[in-house]
Design a protein around this nucleic acid. Structure first.
Lengths: 118, 118
DNA sequence: CATATATTTCTATAAATGTAGAACTATTAA
DNA sequence: TTAATAGTTCTACATTTATAGAAATATATG
């Protein structure tokens, strides 16, 4: 995750609607599943329509929501996969882990208070 | 730190120049000092001019950098304080701690892989 | 195949954002 | 008090971004 990736990630989370979508998806458990052959499979999370209901509060999916989902996908903050007529969404745990790691390392060289003269 | 605060923070970090400024300041040690009376005092970090040299690469401070610093201050990601002719900058450790805490809690209900049928 | 459902893409538009230069403010030093 | 330095604010402008509606695509179903 380089500087460019990070600014794309933060820009994606910088929009209130997108942050809500991200937080809603993050609040939906079971982000990753392992299939019979041991393969890691994408999440069976809410559909775009369900995200729309919960986050936007409308039945009809707007092009605006599609746009925001695309931005979140572009930042690799979420994944989406077709299930029949629907698209199901979930947070990308790998990226979330990278962000956590970034923040545990940034500015961490001497975070505690330091005694000082004058 | 509510939803609004977070989106302001992420939006601030979402601009490549601001992210560079933030990371530069975060890389400058000793963010907090405690004075003789026990009061927590702002960092004695780089001046705006020094930030400009390191991050933008120019001698002359642009209004654009001032604007970015204002955004970072508004998000409470950095603090600034006058020292004579200069303004000195540093990251706001309290906010940084809040962001760390946010990311350790978001989407963390079952982050590990889960066995699944079908 | 025709229709319904779910979602995306396209196009236009309005609002927000970043940049540049000039003018302004605060502090120090002569 | 005048000049120099350091930085900010103001104004204008170009670019980017978010939103809305219409048309297009993909899948399921009758």
């Amino acid at each position: 995750m380089d500087h460019k990736d990070r600014s794309v990630i933060f820009k994606a989370l910088g929009d209130p609607t997108r942050l809500r979508v991200f937080e809603f998806l993050a609040s939906c458990c079971c982000p990753v599943a392992v299939g019979d052959e041991g393969e890691v499979r994408p999440v069976l999370g809410p559909t775009v329509g369900e995200v729309c209901c919960s986050v936007i509060g409308t039945e009809k999916i707007s092009s605006s929501l599609s746009f925001h989902l695309k931005e979140l996908r572009n930042a690799e903050l979420i994944t989406m996969e077709r299930r029949g007529k629907n698209m199901v969404c979930g947070v990308n745990q790998a990226t979330l882990a990278q962000i956590r790691s970034y923040f545990s390392n940034v500015g961490g060289c001497c975070g505690e208070e330091t005694e000082m003269k004058q």
